[in-house]
Every structure is written in structure tokens, then in C-alpha cells.
């Protein structure tokens, strides 16, 4: 398990390559990358605040939950904070498993939980001003599909 919360950019190709190369006996690696989306009105900047200490613990907990639910070889989570602009990469997850279904599902689970259970907050600056991004009800609703069974 490799969990990193950092301000600086990461190299997606190098991270994905490195992660895949570290696996043994795994038939599948899934990676997901989150990118800063431009908004109507034009995004000047997105600032990501987080809760140092709790962020790492929360990500670790989410990754451990994923490992207990699926047959997972390894998990990588990188999440940035600080100031970003449109089209920059915010975060990535990678999962490995013997068969692809576990890796796909675990990656989705990680993303769903990371969106509403890891202490990050986004603030967008456009020419209209600055505003905190509100949490979406559908993101919270996404979690229920993992708690049904």
C-alpha cells in the first residue's frame, strides 16, 4: 500500500509503470486519474485544502476497507493539495488483482469513498469570484451501493 498526499505534480506514466512493475502474480492493474475540470465562466485556479494527519489516516482506512472487500494485490493513492489550474492532474489511484473485476471494483470503491470521506475541500476561483465547491448529494448516494450487501 502506497499513500501519498503532496503538493507537487506527479508523473502519471512513471507512477503507473512503477506500480505495474512492482506487482507479481497479478493479472490486472487498473488506474484512475482525476483532472481539474474547467467550469463555465472559466476557472482561474482551484485550491485544494486538506487536514494534514487525518487525510493520510482516512485514505489508509479507505484502502484497508478495499483490501478487506476484494482480492487485491496492492493499492496506490496519490492526492494533491494546494493551487492547481484546469487540466492539471489532481489525483490518481491504482489497484492490482489477479482478475480484473476486483481491481476495477476496488478502484471505483476507492474513488467513491475518497470523494466524500477524505478531508479535502476544493475552492474555485473564476472571474466571478471565489467559491467553495459544494459536496454533491449524488456523491453521498454513491456510497450506499457499497453498503447494501
Amino acid at each position: 500500500m502506497d499513500i501519498r498526499v503532496q503538493e507537487h505534480a506527479f508523473d502519471l506514466g512513471r507512477e503507473a509503470q512503477g506500480f505495474a512493475a512492482r506487482q507479481t502474480g497479478m493479472g490486472a492493474v487498473v488506474t484512475f486519474t482525476g483532472i481539474v475540470r474547467d467550469v463555465a465562466g472559466g476557472l482561474d485556479q482551484m485550491e485544494i485544502e486538506h487536514y494534514p494527519g487525518m487525510t493520510e489516516k482516512a485514505l489508509m482506512q479507505i484502502a484497508e476497507d478495499a483490501e478487506s472487500r476484494w482480492n487485491i494485490g496492492d493499492i496506490l493513492i496519490i492526492h494533491r493539495h494546494g493551487k492547481l489550474v484546469a487540466d492539471e492532474m489532481i489525483m490518481m489511484v491504482a489497484t492490482s488483482s489477479r482478475h480484473r473485476k476486483d481491481a476495477f471494483e476496488a478502484a471505483e470503491f476507492l474513488m467513491d469513498y475518497l470523494k466524500s470521506r477524505a478531508p479535502f475541500w476544493k475552492k474555485e476561483t473564476t472571474k466571478d469570484g471565489k467559491d467553495w465547491v459544494a459536496a454533491k448529494a449524488e456523491d453521498e448516494a454513491e456510497l450506499t451501493r457499497w453498503t447494501k450487501d
Binding site: Y51, A58, L114, K115, P119, F120, W121, A135, E140
Partner: peptide, 29 residues
Amino acid sequence: VAVDQELTEFDAPLGDAREVAFFPPMTGG
């Protein structure tokens, strides 16, 4: 709210908590 860096509810006991944090719903990812 988080007590000692764990999410909890407003009716949660504080016990010997050292750190309590208040924040809006999170928007990671």
C-alpha cells in the same frame, strides 16, 4: 465533525479527546 481525526457525530462523547475539527462536507477526488 472529526474527533481525534476520526469522523463522528455531533452527539459523540469527547472523552479525553485532544483534537476536534469542524468542516463542511468533503470534496475530494
